[in-house]
Design a binder for these strands. Structure first.
Lengths: 118, 118, 118, 118
DNA sequence: GTGGTCTAGACCACA
DNA sequence: GTGGTCTAGACCACA
């Protein structure tokens, strides 16, 4: 695992987003065991506490769960993963349309713009 | 002018964005004089220092300029406004495509998704 | 504010419980501003980070919210407070009945027991 | 024997509680011989060390005793079993009343609540 | 070896 | 002054 951290965004949030994307995109497979907190922190070159904070966020989203003394695992709840994936697609799409509308592009203009600039 | 502030984003940034949008979308007309800092701060219910910080940002983008003793004006440089508008459209569009790609939608999928969910 | 900490339960959880109870029971009034993180941590004689962890939990329950640079406030959402209160009453009551059942008291026995030992 | 372990509570404690309940409720009869540590650990799918730890707890409560080379037995001290049962009923009942009081239910309210929600 | 908690202390942006 | 983030480092229970 490797992240190019952006200095303007809290590290733990970037870790949350990265792992969330890896789960949603299937790079992290449901049921997989994550590396230990210490190992992952070491690899990402962050303090273990920072990583713990990120993992706690993911756990509160139910995207990972903890087996005491054993490790942390990616959820096996594929329905949940898909629900989060759909909700993300919806949120970023409607935000995008709103942002484009704010600068004067309506729905059609926006789609035309996207197609022309691919 | 009226803004529903989001408590999780710095106020001065929200003001910058709002004014930038108003200029780009034409709600604020090139050459227009802005209300005085004092009035604008009062209307927005923010600390004048916060407003000054926002206006400084806009001035450094050349979207407004200051006439000593006279006030602050929206730039008349329509070319600049359009350039910023284009660059914004480009940035948010390519961010959007990247975000959708991260969760497994390619260009075509994304456009289909947008159309179906309009 | 004052808490007699039980050494067997994480401090931050005891703080969460205490504040939750204070909100639910009305000791903390909806809309009230909490003392600053530093002050509260000092009074409770815990590290500010520990307090922050507790407050984050409460915020994720929507029982408090943060105004950036201004402080933290008890939610004004009385409906939510009542919902949490009801759900708590339900949870601890059904747990209680289950525990009593496990040692051989049925519903009637349990109520009799409660009445006799008041 | 079968336990649905809760990953957030130490396994050995869950075993202690389960066996305690089985003794108190009479599922395990006074004087009965327990299965061997090895068998019981195998059945519960836990590490034998974990089971030993649980059994030691029960032995220190005098709920079971060890006959050297012969095995472990449920106590025949019915007075003790009843004492523990009573003390448990008392503890969980007074905790329950305290918890309900904390969220604004007095003794009468609590009993009414229990009756209405049975 | 696994995760969990806590402290001390530093540094930051914002208003 | 307000909250937010991060690190270094220690100590713990559990399996």
């Amino acid at each position: 695992m490797n992240i190019n951290f952006d200095n303007n965004i809290p590290i733990y949030i970037q870790i949350v987003e990265k792992l969330k994307m890896d789960i949603i995109s299937g790079k992290l497979v449901p049921g997989d065991r994550l590396p230990s907190v210490r190992d992952l922190a070491f690899n990402l070159k962050v303090n273990p506490n920072t990583l713990v904070k990120a993992l706690n966020e993911l756990e509160s989203l139910n995207l990972i769960y903890t087996e005491r003394t054993n490790g942390k695992y990616v959820t096996s709840d594929i329905t949940l993963i898909n629900k989060i994936k759909d909700s993300l697609a919806h949120t970023i799409s409607s935000n995008y349309l709103k942002n484009m509308a704010d600068i004067g592009y309506n729905m059609e203009d926006t789609i035309t713009y996207l197609k022309e600039n691919k």
